[in-house]
Amino acid sequence: MKKKEVPQDKSKLEKAKIKDMVYAVDENGEYVTELSTGWEPKTIALDNAIKVIEERVEDARQRVLKNETSPIEYYMEKAKMDLPILASYVGLWQCRVKRHFKPSVFKKINGKTLQKYADVFEISIDQLKNINEG
């Protein structure tokens, strides 16, 4: 890539004042670094990935409202986590966390374990029990 061809497209990086450093060749064929504000192909890829997460969050929210899953799954999706990551944060086996997704099991979780989840999601136990407050 030539230095003058380094793309300067719009991206989410601008508002954080971050620029991406890329390597390119100057007019003399020497390698130099150049800052880039973004490149459309990867901006679209990132936007799509965010959209996938948003859809997962909304889907989880709907299932909580229909009593098909517990708020833990909703908050997990909201925190961009998956089962292995959440299990690792709360320090429980994955199968146990998965069981906690069952609304009937969720109701019986003791205070100490609930607090663990609340701490990981950085919310109160009330918020954990009621997603409308989250």
Binding site: V6, V22, Y23, A24, Y31, I44, A45, L46, A49, V52
Partner: peptide, 27 residues
């Protein structure tokens, strides 16, 4: 589409220097 996006993100994300580290290697 999601899988393709993942390839492009890993290739061009911050830190690769562009072209999946190939330009850094050329330098």
């Amino acid at each position: 589409n999601h899988y393709l996006g993942q390839i492009v993100r890993m290739q061009e994300e911050i830190g690769t220097g562009g072209g999946g580290f190939r330009y850094i290697y050329a330098a």
